[in-house]
Design a protein around this nucleic acid. Sequence first.
DNA 1: GCCGTTTTCGGCCCGACTGTTTTCAGTCG
Length: 575
Amino acid sequence: MAEKKVSNAEIASTLFEIADLLELKGVAFKPRAYRSAAQTIEALGEDITDIAERGELEEIAGVGESIAGKIRTVIDQGNLPYLDRLREDMPEGVRELMELEGIGPKKALFLHRKLGISGIDDLEVAAKKEKVRELEGFATTSEQHILDAIEVWKERHERFLLGYILHDAEAIERKLREHDAVKKACLAGSIRRRRETVGDADILVATDEPETVSHFFCSLPEARRVVMEGPKRCTIVVARNLHVDLRVIEEEQFGAALQYFTGSKAHNITLRKRALDHDWKLSEYGLATRDGGDIVAREHEEEIYEALGLAFIPPELRENRGEIEAAEEGTLPALIEYGDLWGDLHAHTKWSDGAHSVREMAEAARDRGWEYLIISDHSGGLAIAHGLSEGDIRTQGKEIEKVNRELEDITVLQGIEANVDKDGTIDVKKSILRDLDFVVGSVHSGFKMTEKEMTERVVTAIHQDHLNMIGHPTGRLIQKREPYALDLDAVFEEAASVGVLLEINAFPTRLDLSDIHCRRAHDAGVMLGISTDAHDTDHLRFLDLGVAVARRGWLEAGDVINTRSLDELRAWLKQ
DNA sequence: GCCGTTTTCGGCCCGACTGTTTTCAGTCG
């Protein structure tokens, strides 16, 4: 009973490893099949163990009899003899070599065979001893590239948090757009889809002067290094070691190229197959007849989707999670828009661990055009964050009243981010909570409870008097801390029936609930609230990241409480 | 290994850039 559930990520990782090892062995086509299945499973909105329990593994796209059998083995036994055998044939570190930019299965195996290299450490030693340049097909340039790639690999194990690189990427996009020779410029790739983490930045430009624009791009002051420079493709490295790719195309192909380079890969492969059904082919140059003679559509993305019999699919949905079927049936959601929010539900001030005063936060919110800002500082139980005592809460209330008297065009509400104790109760007296405008309950300690205990804790919290919202419901920190064990479906059901909000915390390291969770929460009838958890006036800009999560989670404006005006919000809170 | 109103067998997405090559393989996205 207490055994750990195998996660979708673990299954995907197993399948990816099989794909790599088969590729190293020179096996044809199978690697693609394993990779395709892995990608689908990685993005599933449901636990694969549940699907396996229902005996429906083979209904997953790309999973057939053989892969389903291997998944069942991993779930039942916790290991996979088939993978163990593959590993025996291939030294551990050879696969690691493929993590280097420019090294694929052929070169990895070649290096292993010729120099006995079985790991990135080995390769670094060999390259420094100038052994690599002596190999057939390699020379000094290749050797240097390997050393460069090793440096990048050492510094960059992780993907970038969207919220931390979006601003820089948009700045480069803007510079390109303002260049005289550039007709159109747009961020593409996972940034345009607003994935929570991104591997690199892709920017697309339309121009009649490719060399001019490419050279301008590679000469940007932000460029610390130029990886590659061609008339159609360039790559530079900017701050934080972020790789920025530029694609240069002609204006009439902009729509096709934007569609292609926005991805996701899985979405595009499905679209390409759909094009083949019409006896067309889809590439970055357009939707065309199979011989390439006649162009069907290419200037605007919308035309491509239309020609394929689909409603336009917003970039945030392009993950091959059912959006193509929905576009065909006309059942895509009318997504919440970036300008739809009237205010923020959760922000901190100097009263607890924030950097700015109530007034400074209020002015910053007003300058963003918001109608309201809910200040939800930490309660006393969180000493590390200078939580507020009962007396502090009263004094802060007076300060908020003063700010509201002095400032126009913004209303500050007094909330609190109270701690959910281990028994599920809130660490602030009801007599205090009663007088506050908004109460967020968050788990800030005791993360290591069992799933059953944690679920009881959160469900109990949902039933506490005056509670309005559960803050960052899973507690995860992206790439740093796993979510705590929690039966989210039980939480969704309870939150929906009691009418408590679940937060979409828009802070870049949290994004909690995540896109996939939002979709499940919505299906369970939960109302969501988007908030920044700002600890600084600058953090208020993260609200759009929360909207991005909501859009990726298929949410409409009506699913999110702060698409409502202050009067409507107050009315809802009184219910 | 998966998949099928073109197929239960025979296909499997397409194009650019790089380096080391005399015409292309490997890698990437």
